[in-house]
Computed example of a mutant assay.
Amino acid sequence: MESFEFAKAVGIGMVEPAINLTKILLNSKKLPKKIIFIGSCGLYKDEKLLEIYTSTQAFNYEISAIMGLSYTPIEINLSTVSQETTIINSSNFITTSKDIATKFKNLGFSVENMEAYSIKCVALKFGIEFESILCATNYCDENAHENFIQNYPKAKENITKYIKSKGII
């Protein structure tokens, strides 16, 4: 569903995009200077739906850590990131709990996107700059999926307009 004629689709979640982007880069005659990942995102709190959020910051922090059921050896230090920066959290799920979304927001995360962290990791491994351009389709609550389905066509339009206005395509 999330595809654009001017971008290469890499898959859903964290594993597929890492594998597919790695294949693309390994088969490239020349590596790009920058990878711009485009897609949708869910909002953890009060930001505006259908707005564009850009970021170079993506992390993987799981709900189980918020609930005190796990920890990660991946260093996540959000205190060094500017308060004005959109910080993306990625995982293989979509948050559907307002309470958990508030806890993510209180940790410093702004939006949720399933693929951004894996794209960032691959880009950095190849020494390539990374940026995400996301359009918010939903809040992270019990209506997340329905709102995503409803808002995605307009989000896709907004992303395309934004990319064209910035001269990216």
Rank of each mutant, 00 (worst) to 15 (best):
M1G: 08
M1A: 11
S3C: 14
S3Y: 08
E5A: 15
F6P: 02
M14L: 12
V15P: 07
V15H: 14
E16I: 02
E16F: 04
A18D: 10
A18H: 10
A18N: 14
I19Y: 12
N20T: 06
L21P: 01
L21Q: 00
T22F: 05
T22V: 14
T22Q: 15
K23S: 06
I24V: 08
L25W: 02
L26G: 04
K30W: 02
P32D: 01
K33N: 15
K34E: 08
K34G: 01
F37I: 08
I38P: 00
G39Q: 06
G42K: 00
L43A: 00
L43M: 08
Y44G: 12
D46H: 15
K48H: 09
L49F: 15
L50M: 12
I52V: 12
I52Q: 01
I52A: 03
T54D: 15
S55M: 09
T56D: 15
Q57M: 04
F59P: 02
F59L: 04
N60P: 09
Y61W: 12
I63P: 01
M67S: 14
T72Q: 13
I74P: 15
I74D: 14
E75P: 14
N77T: 05
L78G: 10
L78P: 03
S79W: 15
T80I: 12
S82H: 07
S82N: 11
S82W: 10
Q83N: 12
Q83C: 07
T85M: 13
T85D: 13
I87D: 07
F93M: 06
T95A: 07
T96C: 09
D99I: 09
A101F: 08
A101H: 04
A101C: 05
T102N: 10
T102S: 15
F104W: 08
K105F: 07
K105V: 02
N106K: 03
L107W: 03
V111D: 11
E112G: 01
N113C: 13
N113I: 09
A116F: 02
A116V: 00
V122N: 05
V122I: 11
A123C: 08
F126C: 10
F126L: 06
G127P: 13
I128N: 04
E131T: 03
E131N: 04
S132Y: 09
S132M: 14
S132C: 09
S132R: 12
A136G: 05
T137M: 09
N138E: 10
Y139D: 11
C140Q: 13
D141M: 01
D141E: 07
A144V: 04
H145S: 11
H145R: 14
H145Q: 15
E146I: 11
E146G: 14
N147C: 11
F148Q: 10
I149K: 10
Q150K: 05
Y152Q: 03
Y152H: 10
P153D: 01
P153W: 03
K156P: 00
K156W: 01
E157S: 06
N158F: 04
T160D: 00
Y162A: 07
I163E: 00
K164G: 10
I168Y: 08
I169A: 14
